[in-house]
Design a protein around this nucleic acid. Sequence first.
DNA 1: ATAGGAATATACCGATCGGTATAGTCTATT
DNA 2: AATAGACTATACCGATCGGTATATTCCTAT
Lengths: 203, 203
Amino acid sequence: MSLNLQEKILRAASELFYSQGIRATGVEAIAKAANTTKMSLYKYFMSKDDLVLAFLRKRDEDFRGWFVDQVDGKADTPKAKLLAVFDVIGEWMAIPEFRGCAFINAAAEFPLAGNPVLQVSAEFYDHFRRYIADLAEQCGSKSPESLALQLSLLLEGAIVSEQMKRHSGSAEQAKQAAIILIEHSIIDIPDTSLLTSNPGEQQ
Amino acid sequence: MSLNLQEKILRAASELFYSQGIRATGVEAIAKAANTTKMSLYKYFMSKDDLVLAFLRKRDEDFRGWFVDQVDGKADTPKAKLLAVFDVIGEWMAIPEFRGCAFINAAAEFPLAGNPVLQVSAEFYDHFRRYIADLAEQCGSKSPESLALQLSLLLEGAIVSEQMKRHSGSAEQAKQAAIILIEHSIIDIPDTSLLTSNPGEQQ
DNA sequence: ATAGGAATATACCGATCGGTATAGTCTATT
DNA sequence: AATAGACTATACCGATCGGTATATTCCTAT
């Protein structure tokens, strides 16, 4: 029935961190939202920074688990799953609580280079990209890593775009672009390499 | 020689806001960085919020101006410019001061729906997308708005990706994807519509 | 019944926040 | 030389920050 106190605190913190931002959320407000006090909060978490990392790590697990389940519930074949990814993101972006990606937001709030927050955020996207790359490989993509990175750029772009301006069709456009990129990565179309910007400084 | 005091304050604020984050930067630190005091700061700016908006609006102007100049310096034809966009972003992301997109970061720090910060950030990307859409139209793209949105998703994705993990080749991959999308948007390849995720629930 | 640990309530700490009040310094114009 | 206005220096305001000390209540296990 009632949750572990530690989990209650973590849940309250997670919701506030995500909805209001991390720096904008004080520990007093977290304790109040969890129906407890700062004393108990500091019994389970050494510091606010510790709580922030716990939030991000749990979010990493939860989101990826939820995400894979959603995709699996929508599609069976690898190629269909690769496209369903964009539908799942699109549905996520449509919920009113959507406030962008917790990891991108956290990275924006804690810019210092060696910060563990940045590290956890980078790991999340590594995991995410690995998931996409595996699907890409099962599709028969000729360079799964490249395709995975490109698709993840579309996804991240759609998320931050939707965060700044809601309902601008980012997810649909991302999916349309993904269709083209996926198809192009699977079946080769040899005569599209005639596009060069400045032939002299090609890298 | 020496700048307007108001501009000196705005410059100091801009650098600190961008490098450390907005909430993490106090007005006292801004005044100190501008070699002045809080009193003068509050003579020229009504509040910190006012200063934040001034920072974002100036950034909007400056960045877009700088960006267009860079692109124009790299390419002549619309199509070449469309690709040069990715080179410019790639070079920008390589400088050590790079800390992501000021507008995405600001949006992450001020999540409340009606916040003017969010509005200014959305306007920046509207302007940016318009610039891309104009180039796309001059290229003969069949749907310049769609292509522009797709390309901007790639760009925004590359920026946040590079912010979380430096030197992961985001800009190059974004450019490779852009080449395919641009080519596909200009010359039609009719037989790539055989890609459907779940035929029953197509939206 | 009672002891012990878990949780609460509350007050406090020093530091910093955004913002202001007041007095003094400097320089340019007359 | 005097005056005006821009700028500085500094102290202060109430509020809030992350974090702690202390004492009390509550529940459970023996």
